[in-house]
């Protein structure tokens, strides 16, 4: 295809991506180097019959002018990245300089907002991905043995948790785990602890959100593995059985190797997607016990009095770096595939 035709065809697509994906990333990177203007304060002297009092006031006029002149805020260099709400370099130095053992270090680092969010994000990412894949694999094996007539309905029900809007799905579970909801109340009576609730217990919050993650991500693996199972070579399976392989051995040495390339693909995609975990934090109102990097950005942007663009941008850049790290294996794989095809 000649270059001209190619670009004529792809131009709208490229334009959209340049304007709304590339530019915002650049704008975020720039924004992360600025902070909001500090309030301009003027001292006003009020002299009345009882003497003079000085009063400090925010000078709205000067503020407006400052904002119009420098809409991005005041230049701050890398201070957005290093301050208490992000990488917290000073706090870390203090913690490592003076502490009472590993437990103390962990407890204090986990109190820093950024590291708290990072810890939950990574836990979610690396817990949910393998467990959801295992769940999906077993569902696929089980559905595959069902009579034909029941397969359709089983697949229908199985993909519901995946297709559901993440916010809606997490709300539905959050209501059931409410202390007055069916699971919440049952948990309270089972443990004999009437104060047990998502709000009060960080451990329970983590467990419930991770469970939600497995529930909603399992079906994706199921669909992919189920399709993979349909292409397992029947001859190989049969000859394995004739050679005396048990059912388990046939699964272990024929089916799993056959599904391995699919599994790598699913793992990489899911790691990337789970790193963005955001809606469950909102849906479960879990911010007191569990936060994620995406949620930190959201929180900076919705804060009522002043939106913290600089701070949100710094977290965004760090998140993007994290995604790129997770993405590297995918890129290498695509690169290899492409070169193999080209040869």
């Amino acid at each position: 295809m000649p270059h001209r035709t190619f670009f004529a065809f792809i131009f709208p697509s490229i334009l959209a991506m340049l304007l709304f994906i590339t530019l915002p990333i650049i704008s975020v990177a720039m924004q992360s180097l600025f902070v909001e203007h500090p309030a301009v304060v003027t001292e006003v002297e009020n002299c009345g019959p009882f003497g003079c009092t000085t009063e400090t006031k925010v000078d709205t006029e000067a503020m407006a002018k400052l904002k119009a002149d420098q809409p991005m805020g005041a230049f701050a260099g890398f201070s957005n990245y290093l301050n208490h709400n992000h990488l917290a370099v000073d706090d870390l130095r203090a913690i490592f300089g003076d502490n009472r053992g590993i437990g103390d270090i962990v407890a204090r680092v986990m109190n820093l907002p950024f590291y708290r969010a990072l810890a939950f994000t990574l836990t979610y990412c690396f817990f949910v991905t393998p467990f959801a894949m295992a769940l999906g694999f077993f569902i696929a094996l089980a559905v595959n043995t069902m009579p034909k007539l029941l397969k359709g309905p089983a697949i229908f029900v199985s993909i519901l948790p995946m297709i559901i809007t993440p916010l809606v799905g997490s709300l539905i579970l959050a209501w059931m785990f409410n202390p007055a909801g069916i699971f919440g109340a049952t948990l309270q009576s089972l443990t004999g602890d009437p104060t047990l609730s998502l709000r009060a217990s960080p451990v329970l919050t983590w467990i419930v959100i991770l469970t939600y993650g497995v529930w909603t991500n399992g079906p994706f693996s199921f669909v992919v593995f189920y399709a993979g199972l349909q292409t397992v070579p029947k001859d190989t399976l049969e000859s394995a059985r004739i050679d005396g392989a048990t059912r388990w051995q046939a699964t272990r040495f024929v089916i799993i190797p056959h599904l391995m390339p699919l599994a790598t693909f699913v793992a990489l995609v899911q790691l990337m997607d789970n790193f963005r975990v955001f809606e469950p934090i909102v849906g479960f109102s879990a911010e007191a016990n569990a936060t994620s990097l995406s949620w930190l950005v959201f929180n900076d942007l919705v804060s009522q009095d002043s939106q913290q663009f600089g701070s949100a941008a710094a977290t965004s850049v760090i998140t993007i770096v994290g995604v790129l790290i997770l993405l590297t294996p995918v890129l290498i794989r695509t690169w290899r595939d492409f070169n193999r095809k080209a040869v």
Partner: peptide, 26 residues
């Protein structure tokens, strides 16, 4: 064409909320 696809792959992985934080001010 391959490089455009690779770029698209990277774009697909971007968390949406980080892009949003780039939209708001402009």
């Amino acid at each position: 064409a391959f490089w455009i696809l690779i770029a698209a792959l990277v774009f697909r992985a971007m968390p949406h909320i980080t892009l949003v934080s780039g939209y708001l001010l402009p």
